[in-house]
Design a protein around this nucleic acid. Structure first.
Ligand code: MN
Ligand code: MN
Ligand code: MN
Ligand code: MN
Lengths: 218, 218
DNA sequence: AAATATTTTTAGTCTTATCTAAATATTAGA
DNA sequence: TCTAATATTTAGATAAGACTAAAAATATTT
C-alpha cells in the first residue's frame, strides 16, 4: 500500500502531533527522522497529494484521518511485534525496538489479526505503550511521570517515556519493570532528585530518571 | 547488509543453479524475477563487484561461496517464517509464501536463532522443503516425483514441487498432505496419468499432479 | 520598522533499481 | 560457412528518496 519511507514519515508525524498538539513543522520532522528539511518538504508534497495529510507551504502539516489511521496501524504492528519478541521469543525489552522497526512494515492484515490473537490481544507493549486497535483507536490511560509525585506518594510503574537501551538496563539493575510498586520517600526541590522505595530497597534517583518513568496512582 | 533486491536476485540464482546444475543465464534470471534481461545484467555487475558471484559477459553467472551462503540464509529465514505462520499462527500452507517473502528480509541474526529455537529447530518447511542450517548447509534427502513410481509402488508424500495456491488446495481436497501414504494402482503410459490410493479413497490424477508431488519410497 | 536570524522551500545532483530501444555476441540452420 | 534467430549487453530515460547550496518566507531583535 504505502512505501516504507512513507510509513515512517507518517509514524513520526503522528507522534510529533501528539507532542506538539498542533501543526508539525518541517524541521521537527527532519530532526525526528534524522534527515534534511529539504527531503521532508518533498515528502510532505507527496503525502499531501495522497491525502494523508494537509500541507500549506511554511505552515507545517496535520494528518488527515486517513493518515492518522495509517500511522496508528503501523504503530499497532510495531507494538504487537514487540510483544511477540518479548513474550514468545524471550527477548529482553531493551533489544526489541530495532527489530520491530523492520517487522512493522510487513503487509498483511490477516497476519496482524492472527498475531494479535496468538498474543492474547494485548493492550500494551513491553514498554507500557498502548496498542491501537484495528481502527486506530488508542485507549488512553491515566498516568503521570514519577517526577510529578510528592513525598509519601505511591505509584505503580506502567511505562517508560524513553526506551533507550541504557535507560532500560538501568531499570533492570534497580529491579524496576512494568507493574513494579514505587514509593517516594524523599524529594529534593533543588534538583528534582528523589529517594524511592522499590520492594525492600531504598535508593536515590536523579530527576532525569523520574521524568522518564510513568506511574499510575489510584 | 544486502538490499532487498540483491537478496532476491541471490535467492533466484541459488534456485536456478540447482535446477540447471551449472551457469545461470541472464534470461533465466530475468524470467524468474519477472524483470528484464537488461536489468539483470546491471545487477550481475553489481553482485560480481561485491564478490557474491562470478560473471563473465555472455557466459552466465555462478554464485561464490559467500553468495551461496547469503542466499541459503535468506531461504532459511523464508522457510522458518513459513513454519511459524503455519504452526503457531494457524495459517494454511497455501497462504504463507507471500508473507514469508516479506519476512525473509528482516535483518537480525538473533531473531532467527530465537525463532528457530521457538519452533523446535524444524528441518522442513510446511511444503516439505529443507531448512538450511546457520552455515547454509542443506541436508538433502532421497525423494522422487510421484510420476517416477510404477504400478503397485508405494510412497510417502514428503513435499511439493510447485506450491501454488491452486495446487495446494487441490491436494487438500484429495486429503493429501506431507506424510500421507500414496499407492499407485494404475499408470497410463500414453499420458502419464495415474490411479492412486490415498487412505481408503481411490482416484485418478493427471501427469501434471504426479510431477509436482515428491514422495519417499523406503 | 529595519535588520538579523531562523525556517522552509527551490533548484539541481546523486544512487538504486527499473525500463525501452538499439547494438553486439552467440548459437543454430541451411 | 554464411545467414538467421536468439541471447545478452549497452545507451539513455525514469521514479523514489535522499543530499547540498542558494533563494525566499517568516520570526525575532534592536
Ligand atoms: Mn519500539
Ligand atoms: Mn515499545
Ligand atoms: Mn515459500
Ligand atoms: Mn515453502
Amino acid at each position: 500500500m504505502y512505501s516504507l519511507a512513507e510509513e515512517n514519515y507518517l509514524k513520526a508525524i503522528y507522534h510529533l502531533e501528539q507532542e506538539t498538539k498542533g501543526e508539525v513543522s518541517t524541521n521537527a520532522i527532519a530532526e525526528r527522522m534524522a534527515t534534511k528539511p529539504s527531503s521532508v518538504t518533498d515528502m510532505m508534497r507527496k503525502l499531501a497529494d495522497k491525502k494523508l495529510l494537509s500541507y500549506k507551504r511554511y505552515k507545517g502539516v496535520l494528518l488527515t484521518s486517513e493518515g492518522r489511521k495509517t500511522a496508528a496501524n503501523v504503530i499497532r504492528k510495531h507494538r504487537l511485534w514487540e510483544v511477540f519478541l518479548v513474550e514468545k521469543l524471550d527477548f529482553h525489552w531493551d533489544e526489541v525496538h530495532e527489530i520491530a522497526e523492520q517487522l512493522e512494515h510487513v503487509q498483511s492484515e490477516k497476519l496482524i489479526a492472527k498475531l494479535d490473537q496468538f498474543l492474547g490481544n494485548p493492550d500494551f507493549d513491553p514498554h507500557g505503550d498502548p496498542i491501537p486497535d484495528q481502527h486506530g483507536n488508542v485507549k488512553r490511560t491515566e498516568k503521570k511521570l514519577l517526577s510529578e509525585l510528592d513525598k509519601k506518594q505511591r505509584g505503580v510503574c506502567v511505562g517508560v517515556k524513553e526506551s533507550s537501551s541504557d535507560f532500560l538496563q538501568y531499570l533492570d539493575k534497580k529491579k524496576i519493570t512494568i507493574g513494579t510498586k514505587v514509593t517516594v520517600l524523599g524529594k529534593e526541590f533543588f534538583d528534582g532528585s528523589m529517594v524511592i522505595q522499590v520492594g525492600r530497597d531504598q535508593f536515590f534517583i536523579s530527576k532525569k530518571i523520574a521524568e522518564n518513568l510513568y506511574v499510575q496512582t489510584n
